[in-house]
Every structure is written in structure tokens, then in C-alpha cells.
Design a protein around this nucleic acid. Sequence first.
DNA 1: AGCACGCCGACT
DNA 2: GTCGGCGTGCTC
Length: 742
Amino acid sequence: MTEQYARIIIDISHEKVDRTFDYRIPERLSEEVSVGSLVLIPFGKGNAMRKGYVVGITPHADYDKDKIKEIAGIVTDSVTAESLLISLAWWLKEQYGSTMNQALKTVLPVKQKIKPKEKKILRCLLKPEELKKALEEAERKNYKARFRLFQAFMESPMIPYEIAVNQMNLSSATLKPVIEKGLITLESEEVYRNPITLKKSHAQHVLLNQEQQTIVDAFQRDYSENIRKTYLIHGVTGSGKTEVYMELIDRVIQEGKQVIVLIPEIALTYQTVMRFYGRFGSRVSIINSRLSAGERYDQFERARNGDIDIMIGPRSALFTPFSRLGLILIDEEHEGAYKSEVVPRYHAREVAEKRASMQNASLVLGSATPSLEAYTKALRGEYSLFLLTERAKKDSRMANVWVADLRQELKEGNKTIFSRPLKEKMEERLAKKEQIMLFINRRGYANFVSCRSCGDAIRCPHCDVTLTLHNNRSLVCHYCGHTIPMPNECPSCGSPYIANFGVGTQKIEQMTKKMFPSARILRMDLDTTKKKGGHEEILTAFSEGEADILIGTQMIVKGHDFPNVTLVGVLAADLSLYTPDYRGAERTFQLLTQAAGRAGRDEKPGDVVIQTYSPEHYAITTAASQDYPAFYEQEMVFRRMMKYPPANVLLTIQFSSKNEEALISASEAVAAYVTPLAEKEMVQTIGPSEASVYKINDIYRKILYLKHVNYDILIKIRDQIDGFSENRPDLFDLVLIQYDFS
DNA sequence: AGCACGCCGACT
DNA sequence: GTCGGCGTGCTC
């Protein structure tokens, strides 16, 4: 057998050693060492033993053979959670296409600087007058580093080691002799960072209604019979999903197991957090993106030590190092935030399924508007489906929904942004001193073109997605590249009233002020929430009745309960409907359903007015009748016909480069390489075409799509493309290839 | 992170 | 000259 070398990452703690090192695999370990193993290796001048992760194995090391050292041994007694997460990293790498390095970084919390558990402190042992003398001596002898050190000790007798090294730019070369002379000491001190001190749980068990109890009972029965599976709770807005979650969590931690709760970042409000603390006390930990790296690391450390049972957080909380995991819960399962935007582009739902199966845990998904992916699996019987159809709060009923046809309004001479039904209802609420929310479901680049007379958006004849306006002159399909010149009149009805769609929140605010001069108006968008806490501030002000009308984008329809809101107006439902990708209808249905759920949360009945140019579109009619199954059926017909997910798996291959020619030749070479393979496997290929924003920061991007029903076949093709690109550095040197499955 | 190397000023 | 501090670069 030939010699084998392992490519190893030394811990992952420090940026400077954040790359791979090659080590020889000794004969005696050749069986045990594989990608993903945790090994012990001598490192650096002193050959200090360190932990390392094997990220690859090759027969040729690209390093001077004489200098390569051997792996010393395998770490077997590693904490179970850690090795489990490493195998999860391996799975991520295989599944989503990333390097092992990237996968490991996703899965293991990056230690920041010093080990936070025992913080190192420098303490001065000199008396004040001795210190003064030492300082003078250092100055006289021009010992600059030492002078800085003693100067700092004049201020305070103790200095954190971290500060000394990073801020004061002192190196161990300076400190070591000073320590040896006995002038100062280096000691480590237990650090008590922010253990959450909150009142103990006053187990306020709420009384569950029949529907809620059914779910809890079924789950309990399965759990005690050691049946682990995935449950989908489809519960209308306000049906009390959180109470059900609490009961399930309670049950699981009673067994001595641990729970991970995923919440989309935007929904992580103060209210939600307090509910969990109130029920489970200090056994809960919460992470969010505002937590510093150190605090985040601490929370993971507490989880590893078994100090907590419940971790709540966004997608990254999925990698909490729990060794006795019993349940993963994903709230608002349909949210886009569960898909990672960076490599590995994993979906939290899929990773949660994998992790749950690895640790014999259950998975619970909850949503008012389940993703088509989850609902499909539920209908197939892969998930257990539960329904919550009633609002949990007594006397609160679902809102009445009205659809206002903007085409009709225009025909009858109303050129304002308020349809007559919406205007009437707004006047009525203002008179009654009830509150109104105006919702603009705008999102990203909504540069599509539609007709104000007939409501049709101009679509690609091959892909059935809207075309995107480029430079006001041409319309382009971002799936296949189909291009037509911008027409002067509507292709369906000949009306000249066609234009690109898009209104800003500021403009809406102005128009609302003009129409209702006496109303007090709050606006919530990126501008007004930029400063920290702005988000919460505005919502609080509104809920305390400081304004009559709240205008905003998606962010106003999440979380918060506003008992006095009895009218929700969706100004232009088409904005999310005709985005240039296949998910427009799904997103629209979700947003409308959520917006509708905001109205009438208390005894007062609520009204919702949806304004649209396409009142007959199924996403709007089914949202108006609040009929999810009907929406699902219709949308799936479209997805099946066009072979879009979840009917098929869609592999998106993105090529990016600063060099446009290299990008074009690389993407075309891959397309040419893939075509015969795809034909053999019956895989449909589309493109390469330009990405929706072709050039960002001088980087050009092209996209190639592959569609097939079978995930594994696409993974196989992806791996072949990977091999192809590695063998052709001439073509791919300047081009980055990224894969994304959906 | 931790170690050593080489530069540079200070002192016998 | 040489001693010793200081900053930098490398570690398979």
C-alpha cells in the first residue's frame, strides 16, 4: 500500500492557523483515520500536541516530504456531541457541496481568542514604589513594550491577558521574562459571564383546547413508545401553537432530554423570549445575531456542559452541542430565513431531520402556511400532520377578507393607491379610534412589468416566471435568458398603461397623509428601523396607541399582537406575486395569510382588504378564503407542470468571476460537459443565463439550472462537474462555482 | 497560540 | 562587540 497523507485543520480556533496542514498517516492508524476523524498531532516548533480534524486524505502531499510529521493518535474520548457534529459536517459537505473546512465552520462554534471558560489575567506583584522604579527603568532603557505594560499597571493591578496581547500589542516574548523574574504573574480566573438570572419557573400550565390537547397526547404516546418522527403542525394564525410547543418541550425535558427551538430571527421578539423564560427559567438559553461571539460561545459551552436543556435561536442554533437531544422544534417552518445564504447552503429543516435521526430525537415543524415541501411530505405520510383550526383566544374569530380589484378602480377613474372599499373602511376605523395596518409586500428587486388595465404581468413563454426589466429597454428571463424588447402596450389587452411595478414606503406615507390629514401615521421600513432597537420601538409605540396607522413591509406582520388593530390593508398583492422566480405565488399566499392574521386578535372583529390587479389569481382567492389545501393543490399543479420544487429537485449552479470572458467560457464548458450526462439520466438543463443581478461589486454571475425528480442523480452530476472543473484549472482558475439545491 | 529568528539600540 | 528586548513570520 502506498503512503497516505491526511489534510488536517488544527482546531479551528484561530484565524492564523485557519487552513489545512498535511500529516503522514502511520501504518498502525491507516484503518482508523478517515475524513472527519478527530486526531492528535504534533504542531509547531515545540511539537506541542494539538487536536485536529481530518478534512481530506490524499496519496500526494503538496509539501516537502521531509518536513511532514506523523499523526500521533486518534482522539477517542471526545465529547459525543462534538464527534456527532463533525459527522454532521461531513453530511453537510456531501449533501450541499462545500469543502470540509466550510462545513466544519458551520457546525462548530468558532472559538474567539482566549478560551472563555478560564480567562487569563496578568497581575502585578510589585508595590507601588517598586512599580514606579520599574517603570522609570523601562523608560530609561527604552524597553518600549515593557514600559507600556508597567504604565498599564499604574492604572490597575490586573490586566486581562487578552487586552495585553491585542490592544497593548505585547507578545509572549515580552511577557515571559517579566513573569520569570517574578514581577508579575499570569493566572487564570473563572469568569462568570452572564448566566441568565431570572425568576424560577412558575409552571403556569395553560389549559389547552381540544385540538391542542390532541397533538400533545399523540406526541406523548409516540414519545413514550420510543417512536421518533417528524410532525407538522398546521395551525392558523393565533391558534396557540406556542402553548403546544411548551407542552411538548416540557414532556421531553422531563425525560432528561434536551431541546432545540428554531425561530426566524425577525420573530424573536421580547414577548416570545419572556414566555420561554417564564415557563422554563434558567434552563433556557437564547442566542441571536446581536450576541457577541464570546457570549454565543459561552451559550454553546453551557449547552455542552449540560447546564441548560433548551436552546432557542435562529438556524445556527441547530448546531448546539447537546448530547442528549430529544426534540428539535422549528417554528414558522416555511420561513426563507431557514435557508443558509452562504456555503454550505443548507436548509435547516433538512439538517434538523438528519440531526434528529442521528440522535434519536423527534422533529416538530409548525406553521400557519406550511412550505410546499413540508406539506407534500405530510400528505405522503412521511410526516404526521396535525391541524389547529380555531383561534385559541376566546371570542376571537378569523378576519373577514375583501378583495378589491384595482383594474376596476382605474376603469372608474380612481387613480389613488386606495381602493374605495379600503378608503371607506379606513375612515370608519379612524372615526372609531381603532387602529389600521397598511402592508406593502414588496421584496427585493421587483422589477417586473405589468398592465394596470388587465393586471397581467409579462412572462417568459418557456418558464412561466415574470420577465425582468433591464435598463428600461428590454425584458429578460432569469431562468433561460429569453429576451424581448420592452413593449409599448400590453401584449394581452393592448392598453398603454404598462409600467414597472414598485412603490416605496415613503411615497405611500405621503399619499396616506394627503388622504387622511388628521391621522397619526407611523412608518416602519429599513430606514426607520436602522438604528438599534428601532424595530421594537416603533412596534411598542404603535401597540400603545401612539398612532392610528402603521405602514410597513413584511416586518410588521410578524410576532406582535395588536388587540386594537381591526383593519389590515394590503396595498398591492401583486408585488410579491410576480417576482421573477417560481415561488411568487407561495410567498404571496404566506404574506397575505399572515397579514390577515394580524386583524382582530381580540374580541373586536377584524377586516382585511387585499388590493390587487389579479383578483382571480388562485394565490389571492385562496388566501382570501383562508383555504390552504386549495392553494396547495393549485400551486402543485403549476410546480409539477413546470418541474419546479418540490415536484422536482432543482440544482442551481452559480458561476461567478471578475473576468467576464473566463465566466462565459467556464459556464459554457460546464454546460457542454453536462449535456450528454443529463441526457443519459433524463435531467433537464436550463441555461447558462445571467443571474438576476448580473454584476455585483464587479463580479459577474451566471446560472445553470438542472432539474430532476431524484436528488441523488443530481448529486452525482454535481460531483462529476466538480471533478471536471478540478481537472481543468485553465478554464476554472478565475471562476467560482457554487451549488444550491432546492 | 507559541516559538524562534533577526533586527536594533544600549551597555561593558 | 555582545546582550537582550521587540516585532514578525511560521507552524505540515
